[in-house]
Design a protein around this nucleic acid. Structure first.
Lengths: 167, 167
DNA sequence: CTCATTCTAAACGTTGACGTAAAGGTAATG
DNA sequence: CATTACCTTTACGTCAACGTTTAGAATGAG
């Protein structure tokens, strides 16, 4: 309903591929195993609009290709490393997508430098910039707090070592 | 049941205190407001054995003193900054408490240097050390991944600035 | 003194992020 | 072609970490 998913030829000629996903993509359990999550998780992410496989077979099976797998890895990184919840991740990836659109529009604009177009691009770029700066600030704050914590823990370890040396 | 909570004199002489908790401690809603959580949360933490107020009035009201508030701040930091769940936090704070005990025992031991006592201290110290080192490793890994992410975001921001400068 | 706050304690509700099961279609393999 | 393994959707279950409510009784700040 929401996005066009080209149907993959189920008997397509197999292009030789390395350790990446076969040209026609992985099945849901393969993609899940590769990322270390469950198939249920992938269906759930799709339900939330977070990750939709770029292809389906004629029978209706999901096919995850390289780009999908990369997006999945990004989602998991945001979740595990930054501790974002799925809604925050969606917002972040959406804004990243908008930034890509801005870049594309910027390049298209070079051919036709209208003043009106420039003004629109400026607005979009400023929005993207403020989003990135805000995220950078948040990350810096979190990094600082985590680093302070790390120092405390490391100091504790050092004191343990000194006490042990005394014995 | 689990810990001795000395009863606070309800009509005690008020020692002059600055912006810290009054000498006889804060009520539950005061402590909660100060930390930005609800009273329910504090009761829940107490139920889990995470945080028990150091005092009660003769009538049975909880009184949170400075040490309690500091512990609460630590709990929230572990939760928000490190993303620990309450069980992990309990384990971490418990092991920290054990480290304190080891330190005290170590000092007491200096007066009576039994070989047996030394061996026990060594075991405890090594346990504490390995706990701290493990946590340090985990923090380092997380910090590295977060920092890599920060770099990517900062680079994005920089590209936005360059595009804006071109206009 | 008075009225807002807190107490115990129990129970039920909620939200996010999935797990698990059921009933029936699809894909790959011999 | 048949079998087996995997997939589909739908729906209900679960767990942590609380929120909310109920109800009477006791407390304490102003």
């Amino acid at each position: 309903m929401t996005a066009a998913s080209p149907v993959v030829d189920p008997a397509g000629a197999g292009e030789a591929t390395g350790d990446t996903a076969p040209a026609d993509g992985l099945r849901i359990s393969g993609a899940a195993a590769r990322a270390g999550v469950s198939a249920r998780t992938l269906r759930y992410y799709e339900e939330l609009g977070l990750l939709s496989p770029s292809g389906h077979t004629s029978g209706g099976e999901r096919r995850y290709r390289d780009a999908d797998l990369q997006r999945l890895d990004r989602i998991l990184e945001l979740r595990e490393v930054l501790g974002m919840n799925l809604e925050e991740i969606k917002g972040f990836l959406d804004s990243e997508h908008r930034l890509d659109e801005v870049r594309d529009a910027y390049r298209a604009k070079r051919d036709e430098p209208t003043d009106e177009a420039r003004a629109q691009q400026r607005v979009l770029l400023e929005e993207a910039l403020s989003l990135n700066e805000e995220l950078t600030r948040q990350l810096d704050a979190k990094l600082a707090r985590m680093d302070a914590f790390r120092s405390k823990v490391a100091a504790n370890a050092q004191r343990c070592r000194e006490l042990l040396d005394d014995l």
